[in-house]
């Protein structure tokens, strides 16, 4: 029981960033952002190449995160400038990001076992307590998430953060307040895709390699996690933006733990995609009937 819990926690905390990215875009900016698949692998690709070529860890991570952000900004730009549908804008950028990632990596796969890794610093903790639990990794990831959580929350409470939220939920009203809606959308997507890229970086370090297919399936995964989190947490009790953040993190962890337990019990990973899709469908159907009234950004 400990093993799947451990696997699920680590993966859940790593992917929480991309779930947050999708959740913020979806719920606060009213933008179903498909870009996250592309920005996650782009971030991983940039990170792998830089770290392999001897860049320092902070440089590699920063560049990777910014690369992801640029992808998100591009999606926003395509949408506001060319009036292209939100979905299509995201899809186009994912395609661009895929080709770009391949070019950057020079191969479809880069091994990172011998490269520096932030999890190395907590190796000692990982081997203490219980051998099976990566205690150090879990604490490190949780700490990172906590810092991110606080930063995002305080950002969203500033005048600009509030403007961002209004631009997303009610663009017409935002315009009448003098808020530059297109700029806010582009900037908002920049930030969220920075987060998605960060997930890609952490994932690469955790699993020891970067692969061009890393981003595939992330959208369904993030949607499933997001839906689970929103369903399990009480929506009424907390301000909406805090609810969205918490649901994303919580959902990501719960989802990965559930998956790990299922795999542990013998469910083939290949059947997982079907199970995930069905799960999302069930939860979404249930949610609509339970909460049919106004929910910000409901699709």
């Amino acid at each position: 029981m400990l093993v799947p819990l451990d696997i699920g926690l680590v993966l859940g905390l790593i992917l929480a960033w991309v779930v947050i990215a999708l959740a913020l875009a979806f719920r606060l900016l009213d933008f179903p952002d498909l870009t996250v698949e592309g920005s996650l692998s782009l971030g991983a690709a940039v990170f792998a190449v830089l770290i392999k070529n001897g860049s320092s860890m902070p440089t590699a991570i920063t560049c990777a995160v910014l690369a992801g952000g640029v992808a998100g900004a591009l999606t926003g730009f395509i949408h506001v400038r060319f009036r292209l549908n939100k979905f299509l804008s995201g899809i186009i950028v994912v395609a661009i990001a895929y080709s770009l990632s391949l070019r950057i990596m020079g191969a479809s796969n880069i091994g990172l076992l011998q490269s520096p890794n932030i999890f190395d610093s907590v190796e000692s903790l990982n081997n203490s307590v219980l051998k099976q639990i990566h205690l150090g990794s879990i604490l490190l990831l949780a700490a990172l998430l906590l810092i991110g959580f606080i930063l995002i929350l305080s950002g969203l409470s500033t005048r600009y953060g509030l403007g961002l939220r209004v631009a997303g939920s009610n663009p017409d009203y935002a315009r009448s307040l003098g808020i530059n809606v297109p700029l806010n959308i582009v900037f908002g997507l920049f930030i969220t895709n920075c987060l998605a890229a960060f997930s890609g970086v952490l994932l690469s370090m955790n699993q020891g390699f970067t692969d061009i297919s890393m981003g595939q399936g992330i959208l369904i995964l993030a949607l499933a996690a997001m839906t689970i989190g929103e369903r399990l947490l009480p929506e009424k009790a907390i301000p909406f933006h805090i609810f969205v953040l918490c649901a994303a993190i919580f959902g990501s962890v719960v989802y990965q733990v559930l998956v790990a337990c299922a795999v542990h019990e013998g469910l083939a990973a290949t059947d997982l995609k079907l199970v995930t899709a069905v799960l999302v469908l069930l939860v979404v159907a249930f949610k609509i009937s339970r909460n049919g009234d106004f929910v910000e950004g409901d699709q």
Partner: peptide, 15 residues
Amino acid sequence: QGTSPTLSVFDNLFI
């Protein structure tokens, strides 16, 4: 349409 329902009253006035 004329207010932001997910923001608090304070935040609505603030922006």
